[in-house]
Design a protein around this nucleic acid. Structure first.
Lengths: 201, 201
DNA sequence: CCGTCAATGTACCAACTGGTACATGTACCG
DNA sequence: CGGTACATGTACCAGTTGGTACATTGACGG
């Protein structure tokens, strides 16, 4: 066993170039085929490697899964970071912009994967659980400022942000199941419109 | 191979007493341990049967999964049917009542299972896909009347119902991940309050 | 008492799984 | 040149999986 293989359970993996390439290919494969029936051999065959190499670079199947989960996490954070909201935007515009970005069909495979991993994490599967860390609160921390216009107190703004996040995730579930983009768009607009005209509280 | 075993791919299974007992036990087991790492042998051991019997009664592992999925579907429909809303209730009260019922911790295992299966269905896993049939529209058909007070036209009411369903499912995802009942309750109340004071449209 | 049929137990199987052992290649560095 | 470390291919393994073959039980009806 090489030294490289031995340090598999270190928190931060070496992140060498080949490993990065394999990880990227793994994410694409998993986004397309799901993580349920995943086997190292099938993944290796589709990625032009051997299952030996996957274990070599990720230590174990679970190590690979953890890496994928972290990548999905990172992708989410990135999507959140690139929201790039102008301070003048109303909360309604923020919701609309967020939805516009996330409802893009090009992202659907990754969102299916997100929800599949979400479900597995809720069931406590070893590799998927880390996904739950901050899966709500991290979004709240970053979007609460969007809801905090018009001098709304911070705790109330947090409730608004929580509701907005739920709306978006709930409608994504809807959209992925039904494919009815127009219907989901209408529901988002219905929600956003209420935030256009000030707060009833 | 007995005749019983041969008719496995018939749409409606025999539904004999022992099969029903096994199915009920399987649902409980799967609600607790998830469906990801499910094996017939483990399920059989926990249910005081042999994996032979599971195949005998359900034809295959996938047949068993389909039966479980149908049961989860039925449980959802039942939860929907027992909503028992009075015509005088406002949409806000309907949302509150629905949430109150679904946020009950006693249902969490089944809701975790629901979301796990939802994720698998989105990925197209053979046994889970049937879950998607009507997973949104059936709820809309039955709840649209709740949103249709004050002479709101039917198509608008459907948008409202769609939004309400998304809010509830999104907040259930939140609740199951964070366990923060108070926070989720506050978000529901924030949403319901907007429907208390009439429609802005 | 015997035939039928659902229900069940035992034994088995081929396929596939994640993981390991070991040899090998290959590049860079002294 | 020689060594050291990363990278990879081949072969293998023990365990588990879903599924099958076959014998058996037991109840019910003629």
């Amino acid at each position: 066993m090489s030294l490289h293989e031995r340090e598999r359970d270190g928190a931060a993996a070496p992140a060498t170039a080949t490993r990065e390439r394999l990880l990227s290919a793994a994410i694409d494969f998993v986004a397309e085929h799901g993580v349920g029936g995943l086997t190292l051999r099938r993944l290796a065959a589709a990625t032009d490697t051997s299952h030996r190499m996957l274990i070599y670079h990720f230590g174990s199947k679970e190590g690979l899964l953890v890496a994928v989960v972290r990548a999905v996490e990172a992708r989410q954070r990135e999507a959140l970071a690139t929201l790039d909201l102008r301070p003048g935007d109303s909360p309604a515009d923020a919701i609309r912009g967020m939805w516009q970005r996330l409802a893009d069909p090009a992202l659907w495979p990754y969102e299916r994967l997100f929800f599949e991993l979400y479900g597995q994490a809720l069931q406590g599967y070893p590799g998927a659980v880390p996904l739950l860390d901050g899966i709500v609160d991290e979004w709240l921390d970053r979007t609460v400022e969007l809801a905090a216009c018009d001098g709304v107190p911070a705790d109330v703004a947090r409730v608004h942000a929580r509701l907005g996040l739920a709306v978006i995730r709930g409608l994504l579930l809807d959209l992925l199941a039904t494919g009815d983009r127009a219907g989901a768009d209408a529901a988002v607009e219905e929600f956003a419109a209420r935030y256009q005209h000030g707060w009833p509280v």
